[in-house]
Design a binder for these strands. Structure first.
Lengths: 106, 106
DNA sequence: GCAAGATATGTCGAGTCCGACATAATGCAA
DNA sequence: TTGCATTATGTCGGACTCGACATATCTTGC
């Protein structure tokens, strides 16, 4: 997989416009990045609504505060797997995850 | 994460009824298994429609026939990450992935 | 029933991702 | 400001997933 080689990309802020084109990402690569960001946002929202701190949430899912911070930051060291597990842990359904994953930027 | 310890579960066939309850999986765990299976099915469908053998598809995405077989079998050694990348590689959109992931068994 | 193509299963070294820890930055009430 | 809670960033050892290879088990046409 070609994407593998270019893995450690900055997760980017999208401060103005799509950073994807700027960085020369393929359609597949940018779809992956967008998915990660979309799930990140969903996770932060849900954790907030649940009134949990990152540390409290980390304890609840058997992880650490730093990793939760990275999840929510869309850090490239965080897999979609982990994000999805975390979402399920805050009560998201399979359907919720599917929607979150497909949702476009605000 | 508690799921971690019980990781290497058989991916199960669901020959009759939900194997999830039988195996004593938590809601979260079975949601993950179901997602993996749902993506597996979507991948096999799309590859079929594209008229590709597992080997041909593997070459196309820079992987191996055996791993593609495992992807389609819902093997626990295959991450959701990989399945999603594979789906994108056969032309699925982010939306397609979201739908596939949420779709219930036939 | 055989052969050949396709798919499935088992294993392994290499590289990735995870939780943990340390520490820095940010926020926010007193 | 100062102090305390929360969130962000950097780094590691070890667990996990990857592609690859070997081999076994289907399929399908003959």
């Amino acid at each position: 997989m070609d994407a593998k080689k270019r893995r450690r990309l900055e997760s980017a802020d999208f401060a103005v416009g799509s950073a994807a084109e700027f960085l020369g990402l393929s359609a597949e690569e940018s779809a992956l990045v967008e998915m990660r960001l979309a799930l990140s946002r969903a996770l932060r929202e849900r954790r907030g609504e649940a009134g949990l701190t990152q540390a409290a949430f980390a304890r609840r899912i058997g992880s650490s505060q730093s990793r939760v911070a990275k999840m929510e930051a869309g850090d490239p060291s965080v897999s979609l797997d982990l994000l999805i597990r975390a979402l399920l842990a805050v009560g998201a359904s399979r359907r919720d995850v599917g929607q979150a994953l497909a949702r476009r930027m605000a």
